[in-house]
Every structure is written in structure tokens, then in C-alpha cells.
């Protein structure tokens, strides 16, 4: 029996829906700065925790993060994974390193790529800095940062990164 003779026991019913995404006002403030090559976190008026990228709130306190906190593009690797399978719809070729990036002065981390280093040398606590795309390619996205790359500074003890209310 050839493949065509086997009765098909399913049918395809594709669903295509289009959405107009909006970033939200806190994220818009952040992305307007990212477009200029600046990283500006948002601070909680109560506990002073700094969020980057911001969602507009501090879930510790349940209030809006309305304090702008300029940060540098340096930080450390809080943790990471080496991904060996492709991301659906993304041309990036495995294996690649996806890391929780903790910028200096920030109290949460975000996921981004690590490159310009042999994968086996990547460590938790390693110091890193953003590698930006050429300025003319900058847009309203953290993709302005191509990836983060190690810098020649001593490792950080990530246990010291845990936020405590002062």
C-alpha cells in the first residue's frame, strides 16, 4: 500500500490571526531609550528595586515603577543554557548560548545571547558587556544588542545579587 492509499485521519485547518501589538507605556519609555543606545531601567518608589526591561510594575510592592534609572550595558551571567535545538522561525544556528543577563544596578535578569567566546569557557558569574549592532540599524528593540560578550573583569558571586530590601 503506498502512502497515498492510507486514509488520512486528520485534516489541516490553519488559523491565521493578525494582531497589532502595543508595548505598553512603561516598555515604550524603555524602548525609546534603547533606540538611542541607552538602557534605562525603572525603579520601584517603595522598595527601590530596579527592573530592566521594565513591565511597569514592581510585583514585590504592587506599584508602578515610575523612577527612571540609567544603567550601563555591563553586567554578569546569572545563569545560562546551551541550546542545541533550533528556535521555530529563527535563523540562529545551534548550538548557541542563552543566558540570564543581570545588568549592573538591576535587580532582575533578562534572557539574551552570549557570543565571542568558546562555549566551554562560559560560567555563571562571568562579566559581560553588550555588543551593539551598527547605530544605523537601531530600532525599538533589545535586538539592537546583537549579543553579550565576556569582558576582562573578575567573576561575580551570584549569591550576592539577590535583592534585599534595604
Amino acid at each position: 500500500m503506498s502512502a497515498e492509499d492510507i486514509p488520512k485521519d486528520y485534516s489541516e485547518s490553519p488559523i491565521n490571526l493578525e494582531y497589532f501589538y502595543t508595548a505598553g507605556s512603561a516598555t515604550t519609555r524603555f524602548l525609546n531609550q534603547v533606540k538611542e543606545g541607552n538602557i534605562v531601567g525603572q525603579g520601584c518608589p517603595k522598595c527601590k528595586a530596579v527592573y530592566v526591561p521594565p513591565r511597569g510594575s514592581c510585583p514585590r510592592c504592587g506599584v508602578a515603577t515610575d523612577i527612571e534609572v540609567p544603567l550601563t550595558d555591563k553586567g554578569c551571567i546569572e545563569s545560562f543554557t546551551v541550546v542545541h535545538i533550533p528556535i521555530p522561525g529563527n535563523p540562529i544556528v545551534p548550538p548557541y548560548v542563552c543566558a540570564m543577563i543581570r545588568l549592573d544596578g538591576a535587580n532582575i535578569s533578562f534572557l539574551h545571547l552570549i557570543q565571542d567566546v568558546d562555549i566551554e569557557n562560559i560560567r555563571i558569574g562571568m562579566r559581560i558587556q553588550a555588543v551593539w549592532k551598527p547605530k544605523e540599524e537601531w530600532t525599538h528593540s533589545l535586538e539592537n544588542i546583537k549579543w553579550f560578550a565576556p569582558i576582562d573583569e573578575p567573576d561575580v558571586d551570584v549569591a550576592t545579587l539577590r535583592f534585599h530590601e534595604s
Binding site: 508595548a23 541550546v83 542563552c98 535586538e143
Partner: peptide
């Protein structure tokens, strides 16, 4: 679980 949203790097696998 990993749709492509604008504004953020598409790296979640």
C-alpha cells in the same frame, strides 16, 4: 509557548 513578539529578542526556545 514561543510566539514571535515584536520589541524583544526572539531567543526563547
Amino acid at each position: 509557548l514561543s510566539p514571535r513578539y515584536p520589541y524583544s529578542p526572539h531567543i526563547n526556545a
